[in-house]
Protein backbone atom coordinates (compact mmCIF):
# COMPACT_ATOMS: atom_id res chain seq x y z
CA UNK A 1 0.00 0.00 0.00
CA UNK A 2 2.72 2.39 1.11
CA UNK A 3 4.95 1.46 -1.81
CA UNK A 4 2.10 1.97 -4.23
CA UNK A 5 1.45 5.45 -2.86
CA UNK A 6 5.13 6.22 -3.30
CA UNK A 7 5.04 4.90 -6.84
CA UNK A 8 2.07 7.15 -7.66
CA UNK A 9 3.77 10.16 -6.08
CA UNK A 10 6.88 9.54 -8.14
CA UNK A 11 4.75 9.12 -11.26
CA UNK A 12 3.07 12.47 -10.56
CA UNK A 13 6.52 14.01 -10.19
CA UNK A 14 7.64 12.53 -13.51
CA UNK A 15 4.58 13.94 -15.25
CA UNK A 16 5.35 17.30 -13.69
CA UNK A 17 8.90 17.26 -15.06
CA UNK A 18 7.72 16.09 -18.46
CA UNK A 19 5.26 18.98 -18.79
CA UNK A 20 7.80 21.46 -17.49
CA UNK A 21 10.31 20.38 -20.12
CA UNK A 22 7.81 20.45 -22.94
CA UNK A 23 6.63 23.88 -21.80
CA UNK A 24 10.10 25.34 -22.17
CA UNK A 25 10.58 23.69 -25.56
CA UNK A 26 8.00 26.17 -26.92
CA UNK A 27 9.84 29.36 -26.01
CA UNK A 28 7.43 31.74 -27.76
CA UNK A 29 4.52 30.37 -25.79
CA UNK A 30 6.48 30.61 -22.59
CA UNK A 31 7.21 34.29 -23.09
CA UNK A 32 3.79 35.17 -24.36
CA UNK A 33 2.09 33.50 -21.45
CA UNK A 34 2.99 36.26 -19.01
CA UNK A 35 1.58 38.96 -21.26
CA UNK A 36 -1.68 37.24 -22.05
CA UNK A 37 -3.46 38.40 -18.86
CA UNK A 38 -2.41 41.96 -19.63
CA UNK A 39 -4.38 41.70 -22.85
CA UNK A 40 -7.42 40.76 -20.88
CA UNK A 41 -6.91 43.41 -18.22
CA UNK A 42 -6.07 46.43 -20.36
CA UNK A 43 -9.46 46.89 -22.07
CA UNK A 44 -11.20 46.57 -18.73
CA UNK A 45 -8.82 49.12 -17.27
CA UNK A 46 -9.67 51.63 -19.98
CA UNK A 47 -13.34 50.89 -19.51
CA UNK A 48 -13.03 51.75 -15.86
CA UNK A 49 -11.14 54.90 -16.82
CA UNK A 50 -13.94 56.01 -19.10
CA UNK A 51 -16.33 55.78 -16.17
CA UNK A 52 -14.03 57.29 -13.57
CA UNK A 53 -14.84 60.55 -11.87
CA UNK A 54 -11.71 62.16 -10.52
CA UNK A 55 -9.80 58.88 -10.86
CA UNK A 56 -12.27 57.06 -8.59
CA UNK A 57 -14.87 54.52 -9.73
CA UNK A 58 -17.70 55.87 -7.65
CA UNK A 59 -20.20 53.71 -9.52
CA UNK A 60 -18.41 50.53 -8.40
CA UNK A 61 -18.22 51.87 -4.86
CA UNK A 62 -21.98 52.24 -4.90
CA UNK A 63 -22.30 48.47 -5.55
CA UNK A 64 -19.40 47.03 -3.57
CA UNK A 65 -17.86 49.51 -1.18
CA UNK A 66 -14.53 49.81 -3.02
CA UNK A 67 -13.76 52.33 -5.75
CA UNK A 68 -10.52 50.56 -6.80
CA UNK A 69 -11.70 48.62 -9.87
CA UNK A 70 -8.21 47.39 -10.76
CA UNK A 71 -7.76 45.66 -7.41
CA UNK A 72 -11.25 44.20 -7.76
CA UNK A 73 -10.38 42.95 -11.23
CA UNK A 74 -6.91 41.62 -10.42
CA UNK A 75 -8.31 39.42 -7.66
CA UNK A 76 -10.94 38.19 -10.09
CA UNK A 77 -8.20 37.46 -12.59
CA UNK A 78 -6.15 35.48 -10.07
CA UNK A 79 -8.99 33.17 -9.18
CA UNK A 80 -10.09 32.97 -12.80
CA UNK A 81 -6.59 31.81 -13.75
CA UNK A 82 -6.80 28.92 -11.33
CA UNK A 83 -10.18 27.97 -12.70
CA UNK A 84 -8.85 27.91 -16.26
CA UNK A 85 -5.70 26.14 -15.22
CA UNK A 86 -7.57 23.20 -13.78
CA UNK A 87 -10.00 23.07 -16.70
CA UNK A 88 -7.13 23.13 -19.17
CA UNK A 89 -4.94 20.63 -17.48
CA UNK A 90 -7.71 18.16 -16.91
CA UNK A 91 -9.70 18.56 -20.09
CA UNK A 92 -7.86 20.00 -23.03
CA UNK A 93 -4.50 18.45 -22.43
CA UNK A 94 -6.20 15.09 -22.71
CA UNK A 95 -7.34 15.94 -26.20
CA UNK A 96 -3.90 17.24 -26.99
CA UNK A 97 -2.36 13.92 -25.97
CA UNK A 98 -4.92 12.12 -28.07
CA UNK A 99 -3.93 14.19 -31.09
CA UNK A 100 -0.23 13.67 -30.42
CA UNK A 101 -0.83 9.93 -30.19
CA UNK A 102 0.73 9.52 -26.75
CA UNK A 103 -2.48 9.07 -24.77
CA UNK A 104 -2.65 5.31 -25.23
CA UNK A 105 0.99 4.84 -24.33
CA UNK A 106 0.42 6.66 -21.07
CA UNK A 107 -2.62 4.53 -20.38
CA UNK A 108 -0.45 1.46 -20.92
CA UNK A 109 1.61 2.26 -17.84
CA UNK A 110 0.57 0.81 -14.50
CA UNK A 111 -0.47 4.21 -13.12
CA UNK A 112 -4.22 4.94 -12.87
CA UNK A 113 -5.40 7.58 -15.29
CA UNK A 114 -6.81 9.75 -12.53
CA UNK A 115 -3.38 9.95 -10.91
CA UNK A 116 -1.91 10.94 -14.26
CA UNK A 117 -4.45 13.73 -14.60
CA UNK A 118 -3.72 15.02 -11.13
CA UNK A 119 0.01 14.90 -11.83
CA UNK A 120 -0.37 17.00 -14.89
CA UNK A 121 -2.49 19.59 -13.16
CA UNK A 122 0.08 19.91 -10.38
CA UNK A 123 2.36 21.30 -13.02
CA UNK A 124 -0.37 23.58 -14.24
CA UNK A 125 -1.07 24.91 -10.77
CA UNK A 126 2.56 25.73 -10.19
CA UNK A 127 2.88 27.36 -13.55
CA UNK A 128 -0.30 29.36 -12.96
CA UNK A 129 0.97 30.53 -9.58
CA UNK A 130 4.22 31.78 -11.08
CA UNK A 131 2.31 33.41 -13.90
CA UNK A 132 0.03 35.17 -11.45
CA UNK A 133 2.97 36.47 -9.47
CA UNK A 134 4.55 37.82 -12.67
CA UNK A 135 1.42 39.48 -13.99
CA UNK A 136 0.39 40.92 -10.65
CA UNK A 137 3.68 42.71 -10.33
CA UNK A 138 3.46 43.89 -13.95
CA UNK A 139 -0.10 45.11 -13.51
CA UNK A 140 0.82 46.81 -10.27
CA UNK A 141 3.58 48.72 -12.06
CA UNK A 142 1.48 49.66 -15.10
CA UNK A 143 -1.93 50.38 -13.59
CA UNK A 144 -1.46 50.39 -9.84
CA UNK A 145 -3.84 48.88 -7.28
CA UNK A 146 -3.78 48.24 -3.55
CA UNK A 147 -4.75 45.25 -1.46
CA UNK A 148 -5.37 45.81 2.23
CA UNK A 149 -6.38 42.52 3.88
CA UNK A 150 -4.08 39.71 4.94
CA UNK A 151 -3.13 36.93 2.55
CA UNK A 152 -3.41 33.78 4.69
CA UNK A 153 -7.16 33.68 5.35
CA UNK A 154 -7.65 34.32 1.64
CA UNK A 155 -5.27 31.47 0.80
CA UNK A 156 -7.19 29.11 3.09
CA UNK A 157 -10.35 30.11 1.27
CA UNK A 158 -8.90 29.49 -2.16
CA UNK A 159 -7.58 26.05 -1.27
CA UNK A 160 -10.87 24.13 -0.95
CA UNK A 161 -12.09 25.94 -4.02
CA UNK A 162 -9.20 24.73 -6.13
CA UNK A 163 -9.52 21.18 -4.87
CA UNK A 164 -13.22 21.36 -5.67
CA UNK A 165 -12.35 22.48 -9.17
CA UNK A 166 -10.56 19.17 -9.70
CA UNK A 167 -13.90 17.43 -9.47
CA UNK A 168 -15.23 19.71 -12.17
CA UNK A 169 -12.04 19.15 -14.17
CA UNK A 170 -12.57 15.38 -14.07
CA UNK A 171 -16.07 15.92 -15.38
CA UNK A 172 -14.67 17.96 -18.25
CA UNK A 173 -12.02 15.36 -18.97
CA UNK A 174 -14.84 12.83 -19.24
CA UNK A 175 -16.69 15.09 -21.64
CA UNK A 176 -13.58 15.48 -23.79
CA UNK A 177 -13.21 11.71 -23.98
CA UNK A 178 -16.73 11.05 -25.20
CA UNK A 179 -17.18 14.05 -27.44
CA UNK A 180 -14.79 14.57 -30.31
CA UNK A 181 -15.66 18.21 -30.58
CA UNK A 182 -16.17 19.28 -26.98
CA UNK A 183 -14.17 22.49 -27.32
CA UNK A 184 -17.17 24.63 -28.01
CA UNK A 185 -19.22 23.28 -25.17
CA UNK A 186 -16.32 23.72 -22.79
CA UNK A 187 -15.54 27.18 -24.09
CA UNK A 188 -19.09 28.26 -23.54
CA UNK A 189 -19.51 26.79 -20.08
CA UNK A 190 -16.12 28.13 -19.12
CA UNK A 191 -17.06 31.59 -20.31
CA UNK A 192 -20.47 31.58 -18.70
CA UNK A 193 -19.11 30.33 -15.40
CA UNK A 194 -16.37 32.96 -15.46
CA UNK A 195 -18.77 35.74 -16.38
CA UNK A 196 -21.63 34.87 -14.11
CA UNK A 197 -19.52 34.08 -11.08
CA UNK A 198 -18.38 37.70 -11.02
CA UNK A 199 -14.82 37.65 -12.23
CA UNK A 200 -15.11 41.15 -13.68
CA UNK A 201 -18.00 42.77 -11.88
CA UNK A 202 -20.08 42.50 -8.68
CA UNK A 203 -22.86 40.03 -9.40
CA UNK A 204 -25.38 42.33 -7.75
CA UNK A 205 -25.64 44.18 -11.09
CA UNK A 206 -27.09 41.09 -12.76
CA UNK A 207 -30.78 40.94 -13.67
CA UNK A 208 -32.79 38.64 -11.40
CA UNK A 209 -32.84 35.48 -13.55
CA UNK A 210 -29.09 35.58 -14.16
CA UNK A 211 -28.45 36.35 -10.51
CA UNK A 212 -30.17 33.05 -9.72
CA UNK A 213 -27.67 31.18 -11.92
CA UNK A 214 -24.83 33.13 -10.46
CA UNK A 215 -25.78 32.28 -6.89
CA UNK A 216 -25.95 28.61 -7.86
CA UNK A 217 -22.29 28.59 -8.94
CA UNK A 218 -20.08 27.84 -5.94
CA UNK A 219 -17.25 29.88 -7.49
CA UNK A 220 -19.29 33.02 -6.95
CA UNK A 221 -18.77 32.68 -3.22
CA UNK A 222 -15.07 32.12 -3.70
CA UNK A 223 -14.66 35.39 -5.60
CA UNK A 224 -16.89 37.15 -3.14
CA UNK A 225 -15.21 35.89 0.02
CA UNK A 226 -11.72 36.68 -1.21
CA UNK A 227 -12.63 40.20 -2.22
CA UNK A 228 -14.32 40.64 1.13
CA UNK A 229 -11.18 39.47 2.91
CA UNK A 230 -8.66 41.40 0.84
CA UNK A 231 -10.53 44.54 -0.22
CA UNK A 232 -13.13 44.86 2.50
CA UNK A 233 -16.03 44.72 0.03
CA UNK A 234 -19.58 43.96 1.17
CA UNK A 235 -20.07 40.19 0.79
CA UNK A 236 -23.22 38.32 -0.22
CA UNK A 237 -23.16 36.09 2.88
CA UNK A 238 -20.95 36.30 5.97
CA UNK A 239 -17.42 35.24 4.94
CA UNK A 240 -17.39 32.26 7.33
CA UNK A 241 -20.58 30.90 5.76
CA UNK A 242 -19.11 31.26 2.30
CA UNK A 243 -15.98 29.39 3.39
CA UNK A 244 -18.02 26.54 4.85
CA UNK A 245 -19.99 26.35 1.64
CA UNK A 246 -16.80 26.03 -0.40
CA UNK A 247 -15.59 23.12 1.73
CA UNK A 248 -18.88 21.25 1.38
CA UNK A 249 -18.98 21.78 -2.39
CA UNK A 250 -15.38 20.61 -2.64
CA UNK A 251 -16.23 17.25 -1.07
CA UNK A 252 -19.25 16.69 -3.30
CA UNK A 253 -17.54 17.78 -6.50
CA UNK A 254 -14.42 15.68 -6.07
CA UNK A 255 -16.43 12.59 -5.24
CA UNK A 256 -18.88 12.88 -8.12
CA UNK A 257 -16.25 14.01 -10.62
CA UNK A 258 -14.21 10.92 -9.85
CA UNK A 259 -17.18 8.62 -10.28
CA UNK A 260 -18.19 10.17 -13.59
CA UNK A 261 -14.68 9.99 -14.95
CA UNK A 262 -14.28 6.35 -13.99
CA UNK A 263 -17.49 5.45 -15.78
CA UNK A 264 -16.55 7.28 -18.95
CA UNK A 265 -13.06 5.80 -18.90
CA UNK A 266 -14.60 2.34 -18.82
CA UNK A 267 -16.89 3.27 -21.67
CA UNK A 268 -13.99 4.47 -23.76
CA UNK A 269 -12.21 1.20 -23.27
CA UNK A 270 -15.32 -0.55 -24.52
CA UNK A 271 -15.81 1.57 -27.63
CA UNK A 272 -12.14 2.06 -28.47
CA UNK A 273 -12.40 5.83 -28.58
CA UNK A 274 -8.92 6.41 -27.23
CA UNK A 275 -6.97 6.63 -30.41
CA UNK A 276 -7.80 9.69 -32.38
CA UNK A 277 -6.67 9.96 -35.93
Amino acid sequence: MMSRAKHYLRAAGAIFRRDLRIFFRYPVDAIFWVFEPIMWLTPLHFMSRSFAVGGQNLGLAGYTGTSDYMAFLVLGGVIGSYVSSVMWSMGFSLKNEMDLGVLEVNWLTPVPVVIQLVGRSLFNLTHTTIKIACTMSLVWRIFGFSITGSIWPAFLTVLPMIIGLYGLGLGIAALVLISKNANNIIDMTHFMVNTLSGREFPITVLPKFLLGFSLAIPLTYGYDAIRGLLLGTRTLLPVATEQLLLVVVMAISVFSGYLVFRRIERRCRATGNLAHH
Partner: peptide
Protein backbone atom coordinates in the same frame (compact mmCIF):
# COMPACT_ATOMS: atom_id res chain seq x y z
CA UNK B 1 -22.41 44.02 -16.72
CA UNK B 2 -19.04 45.60 -16.08
CA UNK B 3 -20.42 48.77 -17.63
CA UNK B 4 -23.41 48.58 -15.39
CA UNK B 5 -21.20 48.11 -12.33
CA UNK B 6 -18.95 50.99 -13.34
CA UNK B 7 -21.92 53.26 -14.00
CA UNK B 8 -23.12 52.59 -10.50
CA UNK B 9 -26.56 52.13 -8.91
CA UNK B 10 -27.35 55.83 -9.31
CA UNK B 11 -25.38 56.26 -12.57
CA UNK B 12 -22.63 57.99 -10.64
CA UNK B 13 -20.03 57.17 -13.31
CA UNK B 14 -22.07 57.52 -16.49
Amino acid sequence: FTYRALAGPQNEGL
